[in-house]
Simulated scan of single mutants.
Amino acid sequence: MGDFLTAIGLALVIEGVLYAGFPGPMRRALMSVSGMPEQSIRMGGLMALAIGVFVVWLVRG
């Protein structure tokens, strides 16, 4: 459980750095995502999930 909470915290730190450092580009990115079809967003999320699982498997395996 500790590793999971650490991962969530790190994700929030990275997201916070992006929003604090680059608010304009982040706003534009969110606006462009809002116009994308749900299937494209879903596929992007699944690819990110697979890459994340692979990276964790490499590091922890």
Rank of each mutant, 00 (worst) to 15 (best):
G61P: 00
G9R: 01
L18T: 02
A50L: 09
L10Q: 12
M47T: 15
G44I: 00
P37M: 08
F54H: 09
R28V: 08
G21L: 08
L5A: 07
S34G: 03
P37A: 11
V53A: 13
F4E: 11
A20E: 04
M31N: 15
M43T: 09
S32T: 07
L18H: 13
L12C: 10
M31T: 06
S32L: 03
A29C: 08
V53L: 15
M47I: 14
V33P: 14
G45P: 12
F54N: 08
G35S: 13
I51T: 00
V17L: 02
A50M: 09
V59F: 05
R60H: 06
Q39D: 09
L46M: 15
T6N: 10
M26H: 10
M47A: 15
V13G: 02
F4K: 07
G2W: 00
D3T: 05
G9K: 00
G44A: 04
P37I: 08
S34F: 02
G35T: 09
M31G: 10
P37T: 08
S32H: 11
G2D: 02
A11Q: 15
E38T: 13
V59E: 01
A20R: 14
G61H: 02
L18W: 15
A20Q: 11
V13H: 04
G61D: 00
G61Y: 01
M31W: 13
E15C: 03
A50Q: 05
V55N: 06
L12E: 10
Q39L: 13
F4A: 13
I14H: 06
P23H: 10
G45Q: 11
P25T: 01
V59Y: 03
W57L: 01
L5V: 03
S34Q: 08
I8F: 00
R27H: 12
R60V: 10
T6R: 06
E38N: 14
I14R: 00
G52F: 12
S32W: 07
M26Q: 05
Y19T: 05
F54E: 13
I8S: 06
I41K: 14
G44L: 06
I14D: 00
G9L: 02
G9I: 00
S40K: 09
T6I: 09
F54R: 13
S32R: 07
M26L: 07
L5M: 08
G61V: 04
G44K: 14
S34M: 05
M43G: 02
M26R: 09
L49S: 14
I41L: 09
L58Q: 14
G2T: 11
G24P: 02
A7C: 06
F54Y: 14
L5Y: 00
I14Q: 04
F4I: 11
R60S: 08
